[in-house]
Protein backbone atom coordinates (compact mmCIF):
# COMPACT_ATOMS: atom_id res chain seq x y z
CA UNK A 1 0.00 0.00 0.00
CA UNK A 2 2.76 2.42 0.94
CA UNK A 3 4.60 1.66 -2.26
CA UNK A 4 1.47 2.40 -4.24
CA UNK A 5 1.00 5.78 -2.59
CA UNK A 6 4.52 7.05 -3.08
CA UNK A 7 4.38 5.77 -6.65
CA UNK A 8 1.43 8.05 -7.24
CA UNK A 9 3.06 11.12 -5.85
CA UNK A 10 6.14 10.63 -7.97
CA UNK A 11 3.79 10.76 -10.96
CA UNK A 12 3.21 14.43 -10.19
CA UNK A 13 6.52 15.17 -11.83
CA UNK A 14 5.27 13.81 -15.18
CA UNK A 15 3.71 17.05 -16.52
CA UNK A 16 6.89 18.93 -15.75
CA UNK A 17 9.05 16.15 -17.22
CA UNK A 18 7.08 16.48 -20.47
CA UNK A 19 7.38 20.25 -20.31
CA UNK A 20 11.15 20.00 -19.82
CA UNK A 21 11.42 17.60 -22.74
CA UNK A 22 9.60 19.99 -25.08
CA UNK A 23 10.92 23.34 -23.86
CA UNK A 24 14.45 22.49 -22.69
CA UNK A 25 15.76 19.27 -24.22
CA UNK A 26 14.20 19.56 -27.68
CA UNK A 27 15.24 23.22 -28.22
CA UNK A 28 18.86 22.39 -27.34
CA UNK A 29 18.76 19.45 -29.70
CA UNK A 30 17.44 21.82 -32.38
CA UNK A 31 20.48 24.08 -31.95
CA UNK A 32 22.70 21.09 -32.72
CA UNK A 33 20.54 20.02 -35.69
CA UNK A 34 20.40 23.53 -37.17
CA UNK A 35 24.15 23.94 -36.65
CA UNK A 36 24.97 20.83 -38.67
CA UNK A 37 22.56 21.40 -41.54
CA UNK A 38 22.33 23.87 -44.41
CA UNK A 39 19.31 25.87 -45.56
CA UNK A 40 17.72 22.89 -47.25
CA UNK A 41 18.06 20.69 -44.17
CA UNK A 42 20.87 18.52 -45.52
CA UNK A 43 23.73 17.54 -43.21
CA UNK A 44 26.58 19.97 -43.71
CA UNK A 45 29.63 21.43 -42.03
CA UNK A 46 29.40 24.65 -44.01
CA UNK A 47 28.39 26.77 -40.99
CA UNK A 48 31.53 25.86 -39.10
CA UNK A 49 33.70 26.24 -42.20
CA UNK A 50 32.17 29.68 -42.68
CA UNK A 51 33.05 30.60 -39.10
CA UNK A 52 36.66 29.44 -39.34
CA UNK A 53 37.25 31.08 -42.71
CA UNK A 54 35.73 34.42 -41.74
CA UNK A 55 38.37 36.47 -39.95
CA UNK A 56 35.78 38.94 -38.73
CA UNK A 57 33.74 36.35 -36.83
CA UNK A 58 36.83 34.68 -35.37
CA UNK A 59 38.25 38.05 -34.30
CA UNK A 60 34.99 39.02 -32.60
CA UNK A 61 35.00 35.66 -30.87
CA UNK A 62 38.55 36.06 -29.52
CA UNK A 63 37.93 39.70 -28.60
CA UNK A 64 34.79 38.68 -26.64
CA UNK A 65 36.68 36.04 -24.72
CA UNK A 66 39.34 38.65 -23.93
CA UNK A 67 36.76 41.16 -22.69
CA UNK A 68 35.10 38.46 -20.59
CA UNK A 69 38.42 37.42 -19.06
CA UNK A 70 39.43 41.00 -18.21
CA UNK A 71 35.98 41.71 -16.76
CA UNK A 72 36.13 38.57 -14.63
CA UNK A 73 39.63 39.44 -13.41
CA UNK A 74 38.66 43.03 -12.52
CA UNK A 75 35.57 41.73 -10.72
CA UNK A 76 37.69 39.42 -8.56
CA UNK A 77 40.18 42.22 -7.89
CA UNK A 78 37.47 44.66 -6.77
CA UNK A 79 34.99 42.14 -5.42
CA UNK A 80 37.14 39.93 -3.22
CA UNK A 81 38.17 42.69 -0.79
CA UNK A 82 34.56 43.84 -0.61
CA UNK A 83 33.30 40.32 0.10
CA UNK A 84 36.07 39.86 2.67
CA UNK A 85 35.19 43.07 4.49
CA UNK A 86 31.47 42.34 4.37
CA UNK A 87 31.91 38.90 5.92
CA UNK A 88 34.41 40.02 8.57
CA UNK A 89 32.65 40.90 11.81
CA UNK A 90 35.53 43.12 12.99
CA UNK A 91 35.35 45.26 9.88
CA UNK A 92 31.65 45.37 9.12
CA UNK A 93 28.53 44.69 11.13
CA UNK A 94 26.03 46.29 8.84
CA UNK A 95 23.60 43.91 7.16
CA UNK A 96 22.40 46.87 5.08
CA UNK A 97 25.72 47.08 3.26
CA UNK A 98 25.39 43.42 2.26
CA UNK A 99 21.90 44.03 0.94
CA UNK A 100 23.00 47.11 -0.96
CA UNK A 101 25.61 45.04 -2.78
CA UNK A 102 23.11 42.36 -3.73
CA UNK A 103 20.33 44.70 -4.79
CA UNK A 104 21.70 45.65 -8.24
CA UNK A 105 21.53 41.96 -9.21
CA UNK A 106 17.78 42.34 -9.30
CA UNK A 107 17.53 45.35 -11.52
CA UNK A 108 17.03 45.00 -15.22
CA UNK A 109 20.39 44.84 -16.93
CA UNK A 110 19.27 47.27 -19.65
CA UNK A 111 18.10 49.80 -17.10
CA UNK A 112 21.47 49.51 -15.36
CA UNK A 113 23.36 49.83 -18.63
CA UNK A 114 21.32 52.85 -19.65
CA UNK A 115 22.06 54.38 -16.28
CA UNK A 116 25.76 53.85 -16.91
CA UNK A 117 25.50 55.44 -20.33
CA UNK A 118 23.72 58.37 -18.70
CA UNK A 119 26.49 58.65 -16.09
CA UNK A 120 29.15 58.76 -18.81
CA UNK A 121 27.19 61.40 -20.67
CA UNK A 122 26.83 63.35 -17.46
CA UNK A 123 30.55 63.46 -16.68
CA UNK A 124 31.51 63.67 -20.37
CA UNK A 125 33.34 60.38 -20.73
CA UNK A 126 33.30 59.21 -24.35
CA UNK A 127 31.65 55.87 -25.06
CA UNK A 128 33.99 53.18 -26.30
CA UNK A 129 36.20 50.39 -25.05
CA UNK A 130 36.82 52.00 -21.65
CA UNK A 131 33.12 52.58 -21.16
CA UNK A 132 32.47 48.99 -22.20
CA UNK A 133 34.88 47.64 -19.57
CA UNK A 134 33.49 49.88 -16.86
CA UNK A 135 29.93 49.00 -17.79
CA UNK A 136 30.66 45.28 -17.75
CA UNK A 137 32.40 45.41 -14.36
CA UNK A 138 29.65 47.64 -13.03
CA UNK A 139 26.97 45.23 -14.23
CA UNK A 140 28.54 42.02 -13.03
CA UNK A 141 30.46 42.97 -9.86
CA UNK A 142 27.56 42.03 -7.52
CA UNK A 143 27.55 38.54 -9.06
CA UNK A 144 31.18 38.11 -7.99
CA UNK A 145 30.80 39.59 -4.51
CA UNK A 146 27.76 37.58 -3.48
CA UNK A 147 29.06 33.99 -3.88
CA UNK A 148 32.46 34.88 -2.35
CA UNK A 149 30.72 36.58 0.56
CA UNK A 150 28.57 33.47 1.00
CA UNK A 151 31.49 31.04 1.26
CA UNK A 152 33.53 33.38 3.46
CA UNK A 153 30.62 33.68 5.79
CA UNK A 154 30.14 29.94 6.13
CA UNK A 155 33.86 29.37 6.58
CA UNK A 156 35.02 27.71 9.80
CA UNK A 157 36.72 30.57 11.64
CA UNK A 158 38.46 28.27 14.11
CA UNK A 159 40.82 27.36 11.26
CA UNK A 160 41.97 30.97 11.08
CA UNK A 161 42.41 31.11 14.83
CA UNK A 162 44.36 27.86 14.71
CA UNK A 163 46.70 29.32 12.08
CA UNK A 164 47.16 32.44 14.22
CA UNK A 165 47.82 30.39 17.35
CA UNK A 166 50.44 28.43 15.46
CA UNK A 167 52.24 31.68 14.71
CA UNK A 168 51.27 32.49 11.14
CA UNK A 169 51.54 36.12 10.08
CA UNK A 170 48.24 37.80 9.04
CA UNK A 171 49.31 37.73 5.39
CA UNK A 172 50.18 34.03 5.63
CA UNK A 173 46.81 33.31 7.23
CA UNK A 174 45.08 35.16 4.43
CA UNK A 175 46.89 33.48 1.54
CA UNK A 176 47.22 29.99 3.03
CA UNK A 177 43.88 29.66 4.84
CA UNK A 178 41.27 32.23 3.86
CA UNK A 179 41.85 32.26 0.10
CA UNK A 180 41.98 28.47 -0.37
CA UNK A 181 38.86 28.04 1.75
CA UNK A 182 36.99 30.63 -0.31
CA UNK A 183 37.90 28.99 -3.63
CA UNK A 184 34.40 27.53 -4.13
CA UNK A 185 32.97 31.04 -3.92
CA UNK A 186 35.56 32.36 -6.36
CA UNK A 187 34.82 29.60 -8.88
CA UNK A 188 31.10 30.14 -8.76
CA UNK A 189 31.72 33.89 -8.95
CA UNK A 190 33.81 33.31 -12.07
CA UNK A 191 30.98 31.24 -13.55
CA UNK A 192 28.44 33.92 -12.75
CA UNK A 193 30.53 36.69 -14.28
CA UNK A 194 32.34 34.99 -17.17
CA UNK A 195 29.29 33.24 -18.62
CA UNK A 196 27.01 36.27 -18.85
CA UNK A 197 29.84 38.52 -20.12
CA UNK A 198 30.75 36.11 -22.90
CA UNK A 199 27.12 35.82 -23.98
CA UNK A 200 25.99 39.41 -23.54
CA UNK A 201 24.75 41.27 -26.57
CA UNK A 202 22.80 44.44 -26.00
CA UNK A 203 25.11 45.97 -23.40
CA UNK A 204 28.08 46.30 -25.72
CA UNK A 205 25.96 48.00 -28.38
CA UNK A 206 24.64 50.58 -25.93
CA UNK A 207 27.96 51.27 -24.23
CA UNK A 208 29.97 51.73 -27.41
CA UNK A 209 27.33 53.30 -29.65
CA UNK A 210 27.50 50.17 -31.77
CA UNK A 211 31.23 50.58 -32.45
CA UNK A 212 32.40 47.42 -30.75
CA UNK A 213 30.79 44.13 -31.56
CA UNK A 214 30.84 41.18 -29.20
CA UNK A 215 30.18 37.56 -30.07
CA UNK A 216 26.64 37.67 -28.66
CA UNK A 217 25.81 40.54 -31.01
CA UNK A 218 27.12 38.53 -33.97
CA UNK A 219 24.84 35.63 -33.04
CA UNK A 220 21.85 37.91 -32.59
CA UNK A 221 22.42 39.64 -35.93
CA UNK A 222 22.61 36.33 -37.78
CA UNK A 223 19.43 35.02 -36.19
CA UNK A 224 17.63 38.31 -36.90
CA UNK A 225 18.75 38.25 -40.53
CA UNK A 226 17.35 34.80 -41.06
CA UNK A 227 20.72 33.00 -41.00
CA UNK A 228 19.38 30.48 -38.51
CA UNK A 229 21.79 27.67 -39.31
CA UNK A 230 24.87 29.86 -39.01
CA UNK A 231 23.46 31.48 -35.86
CA UNK A 232 22.83 28.04 -34.37
CA UNK A 233 26.41 26.99 -35.17
CA UNK A 234 27.76 30.12 -33.44
CA UNK A 235 25.50 29.40 -30.44
CA UNK A 236 26.87 25.88 -30.30
CA UNK A 237 30.44 27.23 -30.29
CA UNK A 238 29.47 29.51 -27.38
CA UNK A 239 27.87 26.57 -25.57
CA UNK A 240 31.08 24.57 -25.92
CA UNK A 241 33.13 27.41 -24.41
CA UNK A 242 30.69 27.67 -21.54
CA UNK A 243 30.74 23.90 -21.10
CA UNK A 244 34.52 24.00 -20.81
CA UNK A 245 34.34 26.81 -18.24
CA UNK A 246 31.79 24.96 -16.15
CA UNK A 247 34.02 21.89 -16.05
CA UNK A 248 36.31 23.82 -13.74
CA UNK A 249 33.60 24.18 -11.15
CA UNK A 250 32.06 20.78 -11.68
CA UNK A 251 32.99 19.31 -8.34
CA UNK A 252 31.26 22.11 -6.60
CA UNK A 253 27.63 21.96 -7.52
CA UNK A 254 26.41 23.07 -4.16
CA UNK A 255 28.21 26.38 -4.14
CA UNK A 256 26.90 27.03 -7.63
CA UNK A 257 23.36 26.65 -6.39
CA UNK A 258 24.06 28.83 -3.41
CA UNK A 259 25.60 31.48 -5.58
CA UNK A 260 22.63 31.64 -7.88
CA UNK A 261 19.93 32.29 -5.35
CA UNK A 262 19.27 34.90 -2.80
Amino acid sequence: MKLFKSYRRSNWAIPYALFLAIFVALPLLLIVIFAFTDNSGEFSMQNFIKFVTQPEAVNTFIYSIGIALVTTFLCILLGYPAAYILSNKNLNRSQTAVMLFILPMWINILVRTLATVALFDFIHIPLGEGALMFGMVYNFLPFMIYPIYNTLQKMDHSLIEAAQDLGAKPSTVFWKVTVPLSMPGITSGIMMVFMPTISTFAIAELLTMNNIKLFGTTIQENINNGMWNYGAALSLIMLVIIGITSLFSDGDEQSQNEGGLL
Binding site: I22, F23, L26, P27, L28, I31, P196, I198, I219, S235
Partner: peptide, 18 residues
Protein backbone atom coordinates in the same frame (compact mmCIF):
# COMPACT_ATOMS: atom_id res chain seq x y z
CA UNK B 1 19.30 22.74 -13.96
CA UNK B 2 19.86 23.44 -17.65
CA UNK B 3 17.77 26.63 -17.95
CA UNK B 4 19.50 28.05 -14.87
CA UNK B 5 23.00 27.35 -16.15
CA UNK B 6 22.36 28.23 -19.78
CA UNK B 7 23.10 31.80 -20.79
CA UNK B 8 19.91 33.70 -21.64
CA UNK B 9 20.90 34.11 -25.27
CA UNK B 10 21.16 30.33 -25.74
CA UNK B 11 17.80 29.75 -24.04
CA UNK B 12 16.30 32.44 -26.26
CA UNK B 13 17.75 31.11 -29.50
CA UNK B 14 16.91 27.48 -28.69
CA UNK B 15 13.27 28.41 -28.01
CA UNK B 16 13.21 30.57 -31.13
CA UNK B 17 14.31 27.54 -33.17
CA UNK B 18 11.66 25.42 -31.43
Amino acid sequence: NIPMLNPDIITGISLFLL
